[in-house]
């Protein structure tokens, strides 16, 4: 039983071909799996282990190191709010608190606090599915998220794969 769907199996082969050692493909394949499924499930890790000639424990060890890879199901929209030093003094924490309260019971939106996003000249900054939004306020941040929820805004895929 394959975790990856047919087009992603092909994409996975392409990814594997980029590296002299298949283990290097663990991160790109994990991104691919998240694009397909929204999170990195055990089944996904098992197949990645299979494809890269490693073990599931190996894949788990690697993937759990990285904060972008989610090992629990999470919302379709991941809202990452920076609270690092520049955003800290320009209102980042307020935006975070507001979004957390606003989306506390909305399973399709996961709000998380993140470290510096390299957008400090536009602080406070946030990302929705890794699309940048700068100089946000609590209210504009909600508007932005709602834009994604209603489909007027769209994010790229992380793996670079086109997802139907």
């Amino acid at each position: 039983m394959s975790f990856f769907d047919e087009s992603n199996v092909a994409k996975a082969k392409e990814i594997l071909a980029r590296y002299p050692r298949p283990k290097s493909a663990i991160l790109p394949l994990a991104h691919l799996a998240q694009d397909q499924n929204g999170w990195l499930s055990p089944e996904a890790m098992e197949q990645i282990a299979d494809l890269t000639g490693t073990t599931p424990a190996d894949v788990l060890g690697t993937c759990s190191f990285y904060t972008m890879l989610k090992r629990r199901p999470c919302g379709k929209f991941v809202v990452s709010v920076c609270t690092n030093v520049t955003c800290l003094v320009t209102g980042g924490p307020e935006v975070l608190d507001h979004l957390e309260a606003r989306y506390a019971s909305e399973p399709d939106v996961t709000v998380e606090e993140v470290e510096c996003l390299a957008a400090c000249d536009g602080a406070p900054a946030l990302q929705v599915n890794y699309e940048f939004h700068e100089r946000v306020s609590p209210s504009s941040a909600v508007e932005i998220v709602e834009g994604y929820r209603s489909g007027t805004r769209r994010a790229r895929t992380v793996s670079g794969a086109t997802v139907a």
Binding site: R18, A25, L27, T54, T62, M68, G160
Partner: peptide, 27 residues
């Protein structure tokens, strides 16, 4: 040129951690 995407770990900016990460391990 092959572009390899990180996944959220500042330490991977340290050059040898970066190489570990590029090889598919913890950074």
């Amino acid at each position: 040129i092959v572009v390899h995407r990180g996944a959220g770990a500042y330490i991977c900016g340290e050059e040898t951690a970066l190489l570990e990460s590029l090889e598919g391990s913890q950074g």
